Structures are given as C-alpha cells and as structure tokens.
Simulated assay, not measured.
Amino acid sequence: MTPAPAILILAAGASSRMGEADKLLMKLDGVPCLRIMAERAVATGMRVLVTVPADRPAREAALSGLSVTIVPVRDAAGGMGRSIAAGVSALPRDVTGVIIQPADMPEITTLDLQLFAKAHEAHPNRIWRAITETGSPGHPVLFPAALFSALTALRGDEGARSVIQNHENNLQGITLGGERARLDLDTPEAWERYLSDRLR
C-alpha cells in the first residue's frame, strides 16, 4: 500500500499579537488567509484536518463548503501543543504520516505540500522538515505515524519542537525557495509589509 499522509492545518491560536484583528481572517485577494491555506491543502488530494478554537466561530465559517475535517480544540489556550495533540488524535487510522502546517503562512503552496507527500512515499519513516534556501528550519513538517503517540502527548506553546529534537537522527530537510518556509504573519506590521510587497 502506498504511504498516505494527511495534512493538519493549525488554526486554533489566539492571534494575540494582532490586537482586535484575527490574522487568519485577513484577506488576500478578498479571501480569508485560512480559507486559502485550506484550499491549497485540499487541492493536493490528501485528507485535510483543521484545528479551530471553540470561541472563534468565524474561523470555522471561513472554511464553509470545503472538504476538510474541523477539529475543535477546547483547550486551545494551552498552546500549540494542545492544538497538535487534538489534530493528531482526530487523524484517520489508515494515514501513515501527518503534514503539520500553521495557517498563517500564505506563501506555502499546493506544490510545496505535495513535495512532502512524495518524500514520505519514498521514505515513510522519516521526519521531513521544510528549510529555507539558507538552511533555516521552518514549516511544514511531516511526522511518520510512529510518532503520533508522542504528538498527542504535547502540551505548551513550543509545538512539536521536543519531538523533533528527540528524533533528530531521523530528520531530513526539504528546501523550499526563498524564505517562505519561515514567513508567518502574526502582527499587523507583518501583514502590512506583506500586502504592500504583493502590490509591487
């Protein structure tokens, strides 16, 4: 059987650095960033799950009509680790890996995500992590099914850093062009710069 990963989009964060705005509902060409990221994930043909906080119904509404599984995170305030744990716990049993992708990285494309699926097909037991052209680690990150139990035990706001550190000997990078593996937009200033640059 061909190894088949799923995509887990993390969209349960508090968006606390954005003030009154919600970074995941900021619009690109009139479409909320969260929906764009979900559409790109769905276009890969892989199964897609999206974690959302229980207190932000507008995020779930932004995904209306898309073929994604919504995963409410009741304890989202406990940090990214809880979001990852909830999402991984909801994965279908037959998937052989999970591509974890934060929802505030609008430069990540469908083709980028498909690169991870191809790498997983060739080496299904490895951790695959996106890196920039200069070698800096970023997202997405693909974890094999053997690490699902470690992911569901995560707490706090460091994400899956501890899982990666504990299995560095099994980690391999996938280079994505430019800096897009690290470009996340979580402040009004970052969004302003990004939207301004897109108009040039």
Rank of each mutant, 00 (worst) to 15 (best):
A117I: 03
A41F: 09
A58G: 04
T2S: 01
G79A: 08
L63Y: 02
D157H: 00
I7C: 08
A103D: 07
L28W: 02
G97I: 13
P5G: 01
P106N: 11
L111S: 10
T110G: 03
R35I: 06
L151C: 11
G13C: 00
T69K: 15
V48Q: 13
I7Y: 11
R93M: 05
A12W: 07
D184I: 00
A119C: 04
I174N: 05
M46D: 11
E192W: 06
Q172A: 15
I174G: 07
W191R: 04
G138V: 10
T110H: 01
A58T: 10
T132G: 05
S196Q: 01
Q165T: 07
L176Y: 04
P102Q: 13
A11K: 07
T187L: 00
M80I: 11
A61C: 04
P3Q: 10
V52S: 07
E179D: 15
G13N: 00
N166D: 12
I127C: 11
R200C: 00
I108V: 12
S136A: 14
I108T: 01
L24C: 01
A14S: 15
P102T: 07
G87F: 13
A160S: 15
I100W: 04
L91S: 12
D197W: 12
S64C: 03
D75M: 01
L49K: 02
V68W: 14
T44S: 06
S149V: 08
T187F: 04
E39R: 12
V50W: 12
V50Y: 09
R182T: 14
G178W: 12
R129P: 01
T187Y: 06
S67I: 06
F148A: 03
G156R: 02
S64H: 12
D197L: 14
A43M: 01
N170E: 15
T134A: 14
L91T: 10
M80H: 06
V163P: 11
A58W: 03
S64V: 02
G156W: 00
H120Y: 03
M80N: 14
A103R: 07
Q114E: 14
V88H: 11
L183W: 03
V52G: 07
H123N: 09
